[in-house]
Amino acid sequence: MSRPHNAWLLPVSVVAALLLGLLPLPGWMQPFRPYWLALVLVYWLIETPDRAGIGFAFIVGVAADLAFGTLLGEQALRLTVMAFIVQRFRAQLRFFPLSQQALAVAGLLLNDRVVGAAVHMALGEPQLPASFWWSPLVGMLLWAPVYLLLDRLRMGGRG
């Protein structure tokens, strides 16, 4: 039985995640900004691995580096590492209930922060303040709504 899929949804969701990442926030809210691009990428890696993989994560990461003005290749590296981990454990992640998936996503987002901190440390760049470690928690809390929204759109509104 083939599932309906909307070819436009993958690129539109990635662009929307990039735009959400560019959305200006007050200074006090910056540490709580979820890594929208990672959440969207993890969804696509779990649900349609034939359309999203490590190469796709790298390309999206380079686009994010250019859009956000970060160190070229930093987000590409972070998203590639994340994509590798998701692909390695995709079979298990797919069948976890959303609450367990959210915990796994929190681990992925925490690992992303560690990789980013390691890159900054290796290059002698300033580290993010300790408050920026709250972002993975916010991403974990947003996983279920993001997953359900993208799944509903991907399935064409069918339950």
Rank of each mutant, 00 (worst) to 15 (best):
R33P: 09
G73H: 10
L19S: 12
Q75T: 06
L71V: 07
M29R: 09
G21S: 03
E47Y: 04
G55F: 03
M121D: 03
G116P: 14
M1P: 02
G156K: 09
G73E: 04
A130L: 15
F95D: 14
R152H: 08
P34R: 01
M29K: 04
P24G: 12
V42W: 09
A7G: 09
L98R: 14
L72R: 06
A130Q: 08
N111G: 14
G116L: 10
A64K: 08
S131P: 11
L19T: 14
I46W: 02
T48P: 07
V146Q: 05
P136M: 08
L123I: 12
R33D: 05
L98G: 01
W134Q: 11
V146T: 15
L93K: 12
W8Q: 12
A67D: 00
P129D: 00
L20D: 02
F58R: 10
L98E: 02
E74G: 14
I59L: 10
F68I: 09
A130F: 15
A17Q: 12
M82T: 15
L142W: 05
M140C: 15
A63Y: 10
V81W: 06
L23T: 13
G55V: 07
R88G: 05
A63M: 14
G53D: 10
W36I: 04
T70D: 05
Q87V: 05
P31M: 03
L41V: 00
E125Q: 14
R152Q: 03
L77V: 14
G73V: 11
E47D: 02
R113W: 14
V14Y: 08
G107E: 00
V114S: 10
L25Q: 07
T48K: 08
L123H: 02
Q127F: 13
L93M: 15
W28V: 15
V86K: 09
A52N: 01
F132L: 07
L77F: 09
F95E: 13
S2H: 11
M1L: 07
G21K: 04
H120V: 09
A83W: 08
S135D: 00
A104C: 13
M140R: 05
L72F: 15
W143S: 04
L141M: 06
L25S: 07
L25W: 06
A144M: 07
G73L: 08
R3L: 13
L110K: 12
V12N: 03
E47N: 04
R113L: 13
V15K: 08
V146G: 04
Q30M: 15
F68C: 05
A118P: 06
I54V: 15
A7K: 12
V138M: 01
V62T: 07
W143N: 02
S99N: 03
Q75R: 13
I46F: 00
A102L: 08
P97Q: 06
F56A: 13
L148V: 03
I46C: 11
Q101I: 02
Q101T: 03
M29S: 14
L150R: 08
A76T: 00
V81C: 12
G73F: 10
M155P: 01
R78K: 14
A117E: 07
R33V: 03
L71G: 02
V14S: 04
